[in-house]
């Protein structure tokens, strides 16, 4: 299989994510679980990749490793050419903060916290020497909320927002640090089709206008059909890696 399949026309050939023989083994009591058994793939900057596979196929583990939430047991993971597989927990936290934005199926917003504060949260943990001043954090968070069309809901708490709005707040939170990559795990899984479409529209726009690398884990054929590339996992291995440039939406290529 051509492991470096990519869409040069889209990303100018810059590989942001390079995985080589990534393996992840969990020890569950006496039993060893091989969640990933040698995954090798590369994702170019600005690519929109969909990761599919049945439960237990290792797609969540793959997401966690790409998202720097977890470290591989073996193999090499280079993010923008830098080896992150051997980084310390603290260094990984910095990488997550600066380079990766997460969108979860269950939104994972803090309870009883205003939308603005939710979005400000990642900036709080951003540090290049000194922390970002409060006023700047607030204005950046406001801009991120505007980007997802929720500027008028800045003061609202999660309980006062619809599911779709909550997920948009979560996207704003993922955006606020200007990451290169957004990783979404079943972003529409908890939403009705209308809200789901709203969320997808935002992700589409981000991908198109900000050239953000978008990695979406989904079961939804319709959503994965929008991606430029679909990676299928099974039993911890990549079993399919299909480019579907022909399905690109107009303007999506930027070429």
């Amino acid at each position: 299989m051509d492991r470096l399949r990519r869409l040069d026309s889209l990303a100018g050939g810059v590989e942001v994510i390079e995985l080589k023989d990534i393996a992840k083994t969990y020890q569950m009591g006496e039993v060893q679980v091989h969640a990933l058994r040698g995954v090798t793939l590369a994702i170019a900057a600005g690519e929109w990749v969909s990761v599919m596979g049945p439960s237990g196929s290792g797609k969540s583990t793959l997401m966690h490793i790409i998202g720097c939430l977890d470290k591989p047991t073996a193999g090499s993971y280079r993010l923008n050419g830098v080896e992150v597989g051997t980084m310390s927990a603290g260094q990984l936290a910095v990488v997550r903060n600066h380079q990766i934005g997460f969108v979860f199926q269950a939104f994972n917003l803090l309870p009883r916290t205003s939308a603005l504060k939710q979005v400000m949260l990642p900036l709080r943990y951003s540090r290049d020497g000194a922390r970002i001043p409060l006023a700047e954090r607030r204005s950046r968070a406001m801009r991120a909320l505007e980007a997802v069309g929720l500027a008028d809901r800045a003061k609202h708490r999660p309980a006062e927002l619809s599911g779709g709005q909550q997920q948009r707040v979560a996207i704003a939170r993922a955006l606020v640090t200007n990451p290169q990559i957004i990783m979404a795990d079943e972003p529409t899984g908890n939403l009705d089709s209308h809200s789901g479409e709203e969320v997808m529209e935002i992700l589409r726009t981000l991908h198109r206008e900000k050239r953000i690398t978008l990695i979406i884990v989904t079961h939804d054929e319709q959503i994965s059909a929008e991606a430029q590339r679909i990676i299928h996992l099974h039993d911890g291995l990549v079993v399919g890696d299909t480019s579907q440039a022909q399905l690109e939406r107009p303007g999506g290529s930027g070429a």
Partner: peptide
């Protein structure tokens, strides 16, 4: 626990 996980996901370090 979930809040802690989220905070860590968005870049909180052990010390934070």
């Amino acid at each position: 626990t979930r809040e802690i996980g989220l905070r860590k996901a968005v870049g909180a370090r052990k010390g934070d």
